Simulated scan of single mutants.
Amino acid sequence: MADNKPIGIFDSGYGGLTVFRSIFKELPDYDYVYIGDTARAPYGNRSFQTIHQYTWECVQWLFKQGCPLVILACNTASAKALRNIQQIDLKNEDPAKRVLGVIRPTAQVIGNYTQTQEIGVLGTKGTVQSESYKIEIGNFFPGVKVFQQACPLWVPLIENGEYDKPGANYFVKQYLDQVLAQSTNIDTLLLACTHYPLIQQKIMEYLPKNIQVVSQGDIVAKSLADYLQRHPEMETSISRNKTQQFFTTTDDTADFDHYAELFFSAAVKSSYADINNC
């Protein structure tokens, strides 16, 4: 990979593949390397310090693969690790390299979706507790009210293949009822976890018709396309061979491939990534 300079995409597990899917559709000519830290997932209930450590280790691994640009396709990592990585770690690593997240580009546009100026945010416990969406949406849309709801059981249901079974219905409805109980004027629900698109249709079954559900993949993909257009020095440094490589931090790559296909909507063939040797 010495001659390649791919775009790196990181997630704590599988969810970031829904974002990668949209990015590849929007920007198919570039090279990509995806790493899922499945050996240490989930990140949602871990501390800021631990999430920063795990995320930075994977980012450094992606740098070792030649990536000049890394996308944190993970809301929890974007909420709890991105700021330190951008403001501290990159200065010591290489100021020319860039790490971007999924929260800011989503916050920049989500206010355009609502008519009532009230939005519900569904995410992991870590993302919700960080208040990142409230802060960022408030910066871009001061008049929009944000109501948050942690959905801690959704990721386990999805990753254990139970999300499309009747037993999941109770937990989907439970969290939706809780967020809608916070305000009767919410007309937009943001899926602030990259796993949640897999249950988007189920979510919509339990919502009034006037409430729209927004996932992040296409938003992040278009934001990345805009970023590369505005930063030609980065855009020209990325190699263009239309390659995709997938890595996981667990040594059971067959298991990763099986679940990854559900998120990526295409067959995945992964390799083991030993991040301890980065």
Score class of each variant (00 low, 15 high):
80 K>M: 12
113 Y>P: 00
134 K>P: 06
92 N>S: 11
119 I>S: 04
85 I>K: 10
64 K>S: 15
121 V>E: 02
138 G>Q: 08
87 Q>N: 15
110 I>E: 02
79 A>H: 03
61 W>H: 05
105 P>D: 02
63 F>D: 09
69 L>G: 10
65 Q>C: 09
96 A>N: 15
82 L>D: 12
119 I>V: 11
125 K>F: 00
127 T>N: 06
115 Q>R: 11
65 Q>P: 04
126 G>P: 04
96 A>G: 10
104 R>Y: 08
80 K>C: 12
73 A>Q: 06
61 W>F: 15
105 P>N: 11
134 K>C: 14
76 T>R: 06
96 A>R: 11
66 G>C: 02
109 V>G: 07
95 P>N: 13
69 L>A: 08
93 E>S: 05
118 E>I: 02
75 N>V: 05
135 I>E: 12
92 N>F: 10
90 L>V: 12
76 T>S: 14
121 V>S: 08
70 V>L: 04
99 V>D: 08
127 T>K: 00
86 Q>I: 15
85 I>L: 10
66 G>Q: 02
113 Y>E: 01
139 N>D: 00
76 T>N: 13
126 G>Q: 01
114 T>F: 03
78 S>P: 11
105 P>A: 10
137 I>T: 06
66 G>L: 01
99 V>R: 06
135 I>R: 12
121 V>W: 05
128 V>C: 03
127 T>P: 03
121 V>C: 07
130 S>D: 12
136 E>I: 02
67 C>D: 04
130 S>M: 07
123 G>T: 06
70 V>P: 00
112 N>M: 02
97 K>C: 04
61 W>Q: 02
129 Q>M: 06
107 A>E: 00
80 K>P: 08
86 Q>M: 11
118 E>F: 07
76 T>D: 15
77 A>C: 14
92 N>Q: 12
131 E>N: 14
114 T>L: 03
66 G>R: 00
131 E>S: 11
127 T>Y: 05
97 K>P: 05
107 A>K: 01
